[in-house]
Design a protein around this nucleic acid. Structure first.
Lengths: 219, 219
DNA sequence: TCTCTTATTTTGAGTATTCAAAATACAGTT
DNA sequence: AACTGTATTTTGAATACTCAAAATAAGAGA
């Protein structure tokens, strides 16, 4: 029974390992992600290593063990199912649900989670297009490309990797929510922009860094 | 911003003061209600007194201040709205929702609570018939009598004061849920039972202590 | 090899909560 | 008025988490 704090460290470790493709997550990174002083992260990681949730190399960094990854996926499942529930059933704005889920994921019981999963019909993705791990810990595999790296032509938005409310509102306002299909009409490496177009609408530009946060189905 | 622990002490103080009609709640009572050792309760109450949430008389007991009562009603509101939501929207069994709400009441945001309140149409009562305090802290006043003290004749169940899952399942199985109307046909002080009857059904008995936990509208 | 910078670890200390057990106060006998 | 039982308070210690600042290690450059 990990505490909410422990769950947050595991979750952070999991997603940092996804982003940065490094064998070990350095303590500084982790501390920043969790929002604590570096020394605090070191201390906590040593405790987690004792519980065999992480593998820790002093001055090197840490990585989840299989056991730790299992626990992290469990939290992620709760988080994403709650997000989907809040949008689908409760009708909250998808820009707001991340913060809510951040807290509720540590409070929800297995029974309630199960009920929610049933109500939603075992969804595979949350409102941001993030895959929802199954109770077994399995995740539906998908190959996605950032909009910045996708070839010109038609594309279907699959996932938004930045959950900041402002960014999500921008995404929504520009019709870039998951499931939307649009056309990549041009790419300008010099200006660092790509040009997109919705059917029957004027084309518009997106900067490279914003485009990178929008993943589309790989053709 | 009280911690979950503090909220639980305030809630316990509030309901103990309802049940037992005493000016001060003794530390022993409180400790038992919160589930901690007596010394722990004393310690905590002294801290709460410093924060002006309770009035404390050493060797006498404690009672909520106006500020403390406000905070307690706030928790109670969250708890009961969550219960009503879980039964009404999520479809959980009313015997189970108490424990769920016990945890979620400390995790839910004001925004989500507001949304739930709207969805449910500002309910005045939760599934057990307990009144839901309004955001302002007001509670709809009602005069109820225990089934053990109600006069013979027709009666409408309004509130079940014992939230133990087993008892609630018993209540449900015997058609004694809130809103149900039935007839008190007899009262036997010697045998310590009262006899009830649903329209068109055979009468049945209830012991005095069980009957006391079932409140009906006072005629 | 020496030195410097930077990241990491260690140390000392604080908050919030808890318990067990010793000390104390009170109330009710006798 | 002394005695006893019970409830309460105090004390000492533990757990889980945190920070700030001092100490240390490792890599980069001279």
């Amino acid at each position: 029974m990990p505490t909410p704090t422990v769950e947050n460290y595991l979750k952070a470790l999991y997603s940092l390992r996804q982003r940065i493709e490094v064998p070990l997550v350095p303590m500084g990174e982790l501390a920043r992600a969790v929002g604590v002083a570096p020394g605090t992260a070191t201390l906590m990681i040593k405790r987690l290593a004792q519980r065999e949730l992480v593998h820790y190399e002093p001055r090197g960094g840490a990585r989840l063990t299989r056991k730790g990854q299992r626990a992290a996926l469990d939290v992620l499942r709760r988080h994403r199912l709650i997000e989907q529930f809040l949008v689908q059933v409760v009708g909250l704005d998808w820009a707001e649900v991340h913060e809510e889920a951040e807290v509720l994921e540590h409070a929800i019981s297995d029974r309630l989670l199960q009920r929610i999963d049933d109500m939603l019909g075992n969804p595979a993705y949350d409102p941001h297009g993030d895959p929802i791990p199954q109770a077994s810990g399995k995740i539906a595999p998908r190959t996605l490309v950032g909009l910045d790296a996708a070839p010109p032509g038609p594309a279907t938005v699959a996932r938004i990797t930045d959950h900041a409310p402002d960014f999500l509102r921008f995404i929504e306002a520009h019709g870039l929510s998951p499931q939307t299909t649009l056309t990549i009409t041009a790419r300008d490496p010099a200006a660092d922009t790509i040009t997109l177009q919705h059917p029957g609408q004027p084309p518009f530009q997106l900067g490279q860094s914003a485009a990178a946060k929008i993943l589309v189905e790989a053709q």
